[in-house]
């Protein structure tokens, strides 16, 4: 089934207590080169049936109205699963139905993320 990914982050100007706590722990582990951590959310929306631009637009709308609160958060991206490295490419994901991190890709031609992928 196609999967659409929505990523939401707390607004940059706001204090992110979760990220701050994790950053503090990194410091205590001696990982001093990591100077900041901010924590957001990733939603994976499974679609019954083929996903097209209309569905993507509908998810975009939901991302702004429900999955995030614009007073405290920003929608960072709305995209087909795979575009960010969990699948092969947007086109391939669209063709075969999308994959997510825990999708069993056996029997599909979906490749693993390309080497050097930084996501």
């Amino acid at each position: 089934m196609p999967t659409i990914v929505v990523e939401v982050m707390p607004k940059a100007e706001l204090l992110d207590p979760q990220g701050k706590a994790v950053a503090g722990a990194l410091g205590r582990l001696g990982k001093d080169k990591f100077t900041g951590v901010r924590i957001g959310k990733r939603f994976e929306i499974t679609v019954d049936g083929p996903a097209d631009d209309a569905v993507l637009a509908e998810v975009q709308e939901l991302a702004e109205s429900m999955f995030s609160n614009s007073v405290i958060e920003d929608v960072i991206s709305v995209h087909y699963a795979g575009v960010d490295g969990f699948g092969a490419s947007a086109a391939a994901d669209f063709a075969v139905g999308n994959v997510t991190e825990d999708t069993d890709v056996t029997g599909t031609d979906v490749a693993t993320p390309p080497a050097g992928e930084t996501h």
């Binding site: 707390p10 706001l14 204090l15 207590p17 979760q18 701050k20 706590a21 609160n69 007073v71 405290i72």
Partner: peptide, 11 residues
């Protein structure tokens, strides 16, 4: 009402 509520700054 306006505004939003976020996690306490103390954590």
């Amino acid at each position: 009402v306006d505004g939003g509520l976020i996690r306490n700054d103390s954590g």
